Structure formats: structure tokens, C-alpha cells
Simulated scan of single mutants.
Amino acid sequence: MTPGKHPQEEERLRELRRYGILDTERERDFDEIVELASELCGKAVSVVNFIDDDRQWFKAEVGLGVRSTPLDTSLCGHVILQDDFVEIPDTLADPRMADNPLCTEEPGFRFYAGAVLKGANGLPLGTLCVLDHSPGTLNDTQRRVLKVLARQVMRELDLRLSLERETALRREIDHRVKNSLASLGAILAMQARRSDDPAVRAVLEEAGGRVRALASLHAELHGFDDGRSVDISSLFNRVETDFRQLLPKGIQLAITVKGDRASAELANALLLTVNEFVSNALKHGFPDGTGTIAARIAVNAEGWSLVCSDNGGADAEAADRAAAGAGLGTRVIASLAHSIGAQPAWCAVDGGMQLTLRGERQDDS
């Protein structure tokens, strides 16, 4: 007898496809379940199968040797229309299966027991079942084993679906944050260009620089699955490219990085510190409109360091003011340094300003 269609067949198939399990490769997680079911139930064959619209497809099997069979001969196609658990001691005594070639031809399946696999909406998707070539029965413990293992199959599938949803949601949020930061940066840049007030323009440009720095950090941070560490070389290559598009024509920028990855907290502080140093250098240095700004970042197993310098004309008095936190930029740098356990050291070197930060390597980097 050919299995009938479920009363909610279209909805059932939609639920099955929502799990994305059909035609996937064999996996040890599911193989172990059928091996355990076969062993504990003492039956030659065990499968995790799903009933598609025209076939019965096996995610895992032991003792069968195929990945799918036509729906016309499916034993489980009958079972998903019945109770949550079905046991058939002798298939040839069951009118649904008495003429099924899988049961009548040698070596046919004479015993069947299966626990239905149900989706989150309660509709049947397939079964975890055991089969044998001789009639028989299961004891209560074996029946319970099948039911528990069937629930385990669906827990695994539900967990995977939840993780996929979480990943998709995070990507959507990341995309929106990226667009928001880009829009905010563009608005600040546009307002800075339109302003006739030099002070207002300077504030907007500083704010825009910080937004661009955060956008760069966000792009790098969310390029990795762990969400906790950043490729600092890639991050500062991105930042250097952005800076060069905004620097006055006569100002050169050189950023060098030694090391691979840093914690998100450390990367954020280093990035914003470089951003503040560059902004301060442009604001207070280079009276003739030419010069160089450099930043050297190093991260290794022992610790990290950041050295920022320029040849913009600063003297010892300017370095003392910076150390005292006389300006907003230097106060921001002091706060950033404190957040990562460092103390900023300012000095006048070779006709310019130099800032040095050092600290121990963080555990999550």
C-alpha cells in the first residue's frame, strides 16, 4: 500500500525544508545515534529518515547501505500519519505493508519500530526507526531509548536552526550598524564643509574622524566569528587608507604594525588613540603645511606598544601641556590609555611630539 499524504502536507514540507537537512552530507553526530539505536534495540537496521514529497531520504543509516528510497515503498511514510511511536511486530501481518516489496522480497523487513521526528510546529518530518529481517518486539526500555534518541535528533536540528537565525540576525544588525556609521560620517563631513566657522568645522571634523575609526573597527571586528578579537594589521591598513584621503596634501602618514590579533578592547583603544593623535597633530602642528605623522603598533605574546610621533614643531613646553591633559584630545588619550591599563608618556623629539603607550598582553586577544 502506498503511503497517503499528510492532511497538512504542504505545511509539513515547508517545515521540513526550513531545517535545511535534506541532501546534506553524513555526519558523525547522527551516525552515532543510529548505531546506538541499532545496538540497544538489537536490530540489524536503524535510520534517521525524512519524508520528502516523492522520496524517503536518510540522514543516517546503519545496515541499509542507501541514502534514499522511493516514497511508494516507504514504511515510515505510513508511520508519520499515525501516532508518535509505532511498533509493528510483523510487517506482513499489517495491511499497510503486507504487499510492500521491501517486506515481501528476501531479505525483507519483517519488524519495524519508529519514533516520529516532529518539527517546531508539531508536524511530522520523518522518523528514527529500527528494522529487522525477523518478526519481533521491543521491551519498554528499548521503546524509551528510541523516543529519547528521536528527541535528541530534533534538539540537534533545532539548535542548528537557532544558530543560523542568530547568525543571520547578527549579520543584519552588523549591516545596519555599518550603514548607520557610514551615513553619520557622511553627514558630519558634509556639515564640516558647509560651516564657515573654523571652530565648528574643527569639531565636526574631529567627530567625523572618530566615527570613521569606529566604522573601521566594526568592519574588522565583525569579519571574524569569535566577535572578540581583531586582525590589527588589517584594521590599521584600512584606517591608514581612510586617513590618507582626508589629510592635507602636504602631510604624510605612515602606520606600521607588528603582530597579528588583539582583543577588541585593545584594538579599539589603540585605534582611537591614533585617531586623536593625528587630529591633534593636524590642529596644533605643521605651521608650513608639510610634515609627517607616524604610528608604530606592536602586539606579541609578552605585551603591546604604541608609539605615535610627528615632526610638526612641538617643543618641551607643548609636551608638558599634553602630559598635563591641557587639551580635550590629550584628555581623551589619557582616558583611553587608562581603560587598557597604560600611562601615556609625552615628549618632544626631533622637532615634534611623541606619544608612547605600553601594556601587557590581554588574555582574550
Score class of each variant (00 low, 15 high):
P7R: 12
Q8C: 10
E9V: 13
E15H: 06
R18L: 07
R18F: 07
I21V: 15
D23E: 13
D23I: 08
T24D: 03
T24F: 09
I33T: 00
V34H: 00
E35R: 14
L36E: 11
E39A: 09
C41I: 04
G42F: 14
K43C: 09
V45N: 01
V45H: 05
N49F: 06
D53P: 04
R55E: 00
Q56M: 04
V66G: 07
R67A: 05
P70F: 09
L75P: 00
H78V: 02
L81G: 14
Q82R: 14
D83A: 03
D84R: 07
D84M: 04
F85G: 07
V86H: 08
M97F: 15
D99I: 12
N100C: 06
N100R: 05
L117Y: 04
L123S: 04
G126Y: 03
G126M: 09
C129L: 02
V130N: 14
V130F: 11
D132T: 06
T137K: 12
D140W: 03
V145M: 08
K147D: 12
K147S: 14
V148A: 03
R151N: 13
Q152S: 04
D158M: 15
R160T: 13
L163R: 14
E164T: 07
E164C: 07
R176W: 05
K178G: 02
A186K: 12
L188C: 06
R194T: 06
D196S: 03
D197Y: 13
R201K: 06
V211S: 01
V211R: 05
A213V: 04
S216W: 01
S216I: 02
L217V: 12
H218E: 01
G223I: 00
R228G: 03
S229E: 06
S229R: 02
E240K: 08
F243E: 00
L247K: 14
G250T: 10
Q252F: 11
G259H: 12
D260L: 10
R261N: 02
A267K: 07
A267H: 03
N275G: 06
F277T: 11
S279D: 07
L282P: 01
L282G: 02
T290Q: 15
A295K: 03
R296T: 11
E302T: 15
L306K: 03
V307P: 04
C308M: 06
C308K: 08
G313L: 05
G313E: 11
D315Y: 11
E317A: 15
L336N: 09
A342D: 00
Q343E: 08
P344G: 01
A345T: 10
V349M: 10
D350V: 00
G351K: 01
Q354Y: 00
L355W: 13
R358H: 13
G359R: 07
